[in-house]
Amino acid sequence: MRHVLHSADEATVRKVTEHATAPGVWLKAFVPPETLEPWLAPGWHLAGGAGYLMSAPLPNAHARARALTETPDGYRVTTWTRAGVTRALVRTADGAFAARGQIAVTGLSAVVDQVETDPSHQRRGLGRLVMHRLTAAAAGQGATAGVLGATPEGRTLYETMGWRTLAPLTGAMRGPDSSET
């Protein structure tokens, strides 16, 4: 389970983290880590590293992503939609995983999630290719704006594609931590 707080304050974070006691529950909030950490109930810890909430108008992001419309040599990309989620998967010629991502359209907005490139395939344009496929699919479904949570590494790529940072994004997870082992 994940809780995403669009506006976080100490009372709300404490209430959520005191009542969510199952291991593996996540909380994400648009505040810096040093703000969120003291608000967490016992058994919770910061997780996932630094993050950023980013957004872009999809036609703009799509136009900037258009710079890479062909799949690089030695790779193949598959894109499909099921249950409202469009996924893009890049594999090597021999079928090994290289990159992936997904996007879900919710009205005029689309949420990009789980974009990753295998470290041995980075710096080859695969992240840009995945983003191009995802934003094109979302724009084709009528979405005009996209949002995503970025890592520091991902933020660099997304900024070159016209995305802008709106807020810090910090994650926390319920147990196990050193006090529970």
Rank of each mutant, 00 (worst) to 15 (best):
D94H: 13
T71F: 02
A104V: 04
T21L: 06
T117E: 00
G175N: 07
L169A: 09
G51L: 01
L5Q: 12
G171C: 05
V16K: 06
T79M: 13
S179A: 10
T165L: 06
M54R: 03
L27Q: 06
G101F: 09
T106R: 13
A63Y: 08
S55K: 13
A137P: 02
A8Q: 12
A172V: 10
A29C: 01
E70W: 03
T144I: 14
T17L: 03
A83K: 14
P23Q: 10
A138V: 08
A145V: 11
H6E: 12
A145E: 11
P119D: 06
A145F: 06
V105K: 02
T12R: 07
Q141K: 03
A172E: 06
A11N: 13
V13Y: 01
H132I: 05
S120R: 09
P38M: 06
W163Q: 08
L134P: 05
P42K: 04
P42Y: 03
Y52W: 11
W26S: 03
A67V: 15
G127I: 06
A56S: 15
F30E: 01
E10L: 14
H19C: 13
T12Y: 00
V147D: 10
G171F: 08
S7V: 15
A88V: 11
G171Y: 13
V147C: 13
A150L: 03
A63T: 10
A143H: 05
G74M: 10
A61C: 14
H132D: 02
T151A: 03
A93E: 15
G43V: 01
A138Y: 09
L126W: 02
R100Q: 13
T106H: 13
G171P: 01
M173I: 15
K15R: 15
P72F: 01
A167H: 13
P168T: 02
L157C: 00
S55P: 01
E159A: 08
A104E: 15
Y52I: 04
S120M: 07
D73L: 13
E180I: 05
E37I: 08
T71A: 00
G74Y: 12
A88W: 07
P72C: 12
Y75S: 06
Y52N: 11
M161V: 11
T156I: 10
L5D: 04
R128D: 07
A29V: 00
L36G: 00
T117Q: 04
S7I: 02
G101H: 01
L134M: 09
V16E: 12
L129F: 12
R82S: 15
T35I: 05
A98W: 01
A98L: 05
G146S: 05
R2M: 07
D73A: 15
A22H: 11
T156Q: 11
A88F: 07
T86F: 02
F30D: 05
G146P: 03
E37A: 11
V115M: 10
R76F: 06
A167G: 02
R2Y: 03
T92M: 10
A29H: 08
L166I: 01
S179Q: 14
R91E: 15
A22M: 15
M1C: 12
